[in-house]
Every structure is written in C-alpha cells, then in structure tokens.
C-alpha cells in the first residue's frame, strides 16, 4: 500500500469519528515509520554499493596485473618465434592460454558487476527522492495541523461575536457591501461636484452680467413694467444656465 493510500485511509477513517489530533498523530507515526524503513533500506543499499564497488576495483586490479602477464608472454612468444624456437614458443603459448581464458571470464564478471552497480545506484537515487518526498509530506502534515489548530482558535474567538466560522462567503458579502458604499460615495461626490460646477457657472454668468437675480426688487419691478420682453429673457437665461440639459426635452 502506498504511503498516500495509507494516509487517505486514515483520514477517511477518522473524519467520521472525531479528533483531527488522532489523524495528525497517526499520520506522523505512519510517515515516521516510512522514513525509518526507507532510511534503513537506503543505508543497506549504500553498504551493498560500497561492497560491489570494492569488488569491482579488486577485479580490475587483478585483470590489469594479468594483462601485464599476458603482454609479457606475448613478447616471449614473438622472441622465441623470431629465433625459430617453435618448441619454446609453444611452451609459453601453453602458459598463456589459461590466462587469456581467465581474463575473458573475469571481463564478463566485471561487466555483470558494473551493471549491478548501475542498478543499485538507480535504486539509491530513487530511495533518496522518496525520502525527500516523505520528509516534505511530514512538513505538510505538520504545517496543516498547525494551521488547522489556528483556524479552530480563530473560529472559537469569533463565537463570542456571534459570527459563524469566518468564510469566504462573508468576505464576499463584505466586498459587495464596500463596493456598494464606494459606489454611493462616488455618486454623492459626483453630485457635489456637479453642484459646485453649477455654482461656478452661475458665478461666471453673474460676473458677465448675464445672470439676473429673479427675486430682486429691480427684476420684479421690471417684470411688471415690460412683462412680455422679460419672459423671453428669463427663458434665455435658463437656457444659458443649463446648456447640457436643454436640447433633449425643451427644443
């Protein structure tokens, strides 16, 4: 059973019962055991590797020495043949034959040994990766457990204030609330801005002598004196006063 399956089984088993602590403790126990097992395996593999590499080195030394001997016999054979001493050459060749046979056997063995070393190195690499993965899984379980304890503490703290366990839903509501408030504030400030704009315009119009105070005594008196003309004038002033609101509904 893989380590993740074990942890998952554990999580499922306990989730329906109670107590995250049990899960945390057991998960850590399982992980610690896995780490110990993998470490033991790794150490054994490393020892084995050392042994095989030592064997390989010894075999290589033995073969090197034998290669020297083979070369030496070769020179003797060449020398004997050069002198026409066929019998001597044959005697040396008789010594050389088993050496060459041994060398071939050892060569095959060494190749086999090197393959084993390669396999073992791969196994060690894999175990090291596994160990690293297990250690980071322990880190995850520990950190998750700490965070969950903190979340319990935070939830308990908010119980007194009557709110539920803080969730993204509440945050979402708060964001919407704030957006609505901001929108309202923006609207209010735009309104204020446009009022200020109107006041500015009115002041400019008054300065230019175009705006007449409709309620002043002079105006009232003038209205009684020349009603028709002044009516016309009032309309004109209104048009100047709100130029952007006029065309659509008054023309």
């Amino acid at each position: 059973m893989s380590i993740l399956s074990k942890l998952f089984t554990l999580l499922r088993g306990v989730a329906t019962e109670s107590g995250q602590k049990v899960v945390d403790a057991n998960a850590l126990t399982i992980l610690d055991q896995e780490i110990r097992d993998t470490s033991t395996e790794l150490n054994r593999a490393r020892e084995e590797l050392t042994k095989l590499m030592a064997q390989g080195k010894l075999a290589q030394q033995k073969m090197d020495a034998r290669a020297g001997k083979i070369a030496e016999y070769g020179r003797y054979i060449e020398g004997a043949l050069a002198k026409g001493d066929e019998a001597l050459a044959r005697e040396v060749a008789g010594r050389l034959a088993p050496l060459e046979a041994e060398q071939q056997t050892d060569q095959a063995n060494l190749a086999q040994l090197e393959r084993s070393i390669g396999t073992l190195k791969a196994t060690i690499g894999k175990a090291e990766t596994q160990l690293k993965g297990l250690r980071s899984q322990v880190d995850t379980v520990r950190a998750t457990a700490s965070v969950q304890r903190a979340q319990v503490a935070i939830a308990a703290r908010s119980v007194g204030t009557g709110s539920k366990m803080g969730s993204a839903l509440e945050s979402l509501e708060r964001i919407k609330q704030r957006q609505a408030e901001t929108a309202a504030r923006l609207e209010a400030s735009e309104e204020l801005q446009s009022q200020t704009g109107d006041a500015d315009l009115e002041r400019k119009l008054a300065d230019a002598g175009l705006l007449q105070d409709g309620s002043s005594a002079d105006t009232i008196l003038a209205r009684y004196k020349k009603p028709a003309q002044l009516d016309h004038q009032t309309v004109e002033v209104r048009q100047i006063e709100m130029p952007d609101r006029v065309p659509s509904n008054r023309s």
Binding site: R135, A143, Q151, I154, A168, R174, I175
Partner: peptide, 27 residues
C-alpha cells in the same frame, strides 16, 4: 482589500503552508 479574508500561514521544515477557509461544509 479582499473583504477581510483571513489567511493562515505556517512554515514547517522545507515548506510554507498558506490556507484560508472557503466555506464550512454545513453551509
């Protein structure tokens, strides 16, 4: 800036774990 979203952070060994509650299953 995110509606007072509460985020919990813990570092353990080689990792930093960051978590926030989306919603309790009962909701």
């Amino acid at each position: 800036a995110y509606g007072d979203t509460q985020v919990q952070v813990a570092a353990s060994g080689g990792q930093i774990f960051i978590s926030t509650i989306l919603v309790p299953a009962e909701q």
